[in-house]
């Protein structure tokens, strides 16, 4: 999967979870940068990514993420396995 496709699909999950077509997400984005990104939303984002990419993300991996860039990297690594 190309980087552009990965980015577009990750972006799609964020739009769906936040119900916001114009949402702006980049590698440095953290939960503090987007209003309404609480733990329940976080759960929806992770579950959304799992469904979208057919991968499993563990609690340990979630604890290691500090921004959207870490999520991209994790997905890239999982899709390459």
């Amino acid at each position: 999967m190309s980087n552009e496709e990965l980015t577009a699909r990750v972006y799609g999950v964020f739009r769906k979870v936040f119900k916001n077509e114009g949402i702006s997400v980049h590698r440095e984005t953290t939960a503090k940068d987007i209003a309404g990104w609480d733990s329940i939303t976080h759960l929806d984002i992770i579950s959304g990514m799992e469904e979208e990419f057919d991968v499993e993300i563990t609690g340990f991996e979630v604890m290691n993420m500090s921004n959207v860039g870490d999520l991209y990297d994790l997905l890239t690594q999982k899709l390459a396995e």
Partner: peptide, 17 residues
Amino acid sequence: IYTPLLFSKKKWKKWAV
């Protein structure tokens, strides 16, 4: 406490919360 517990049962959706 909260985040590890939440993601350990993430398939429960809202009940995990």
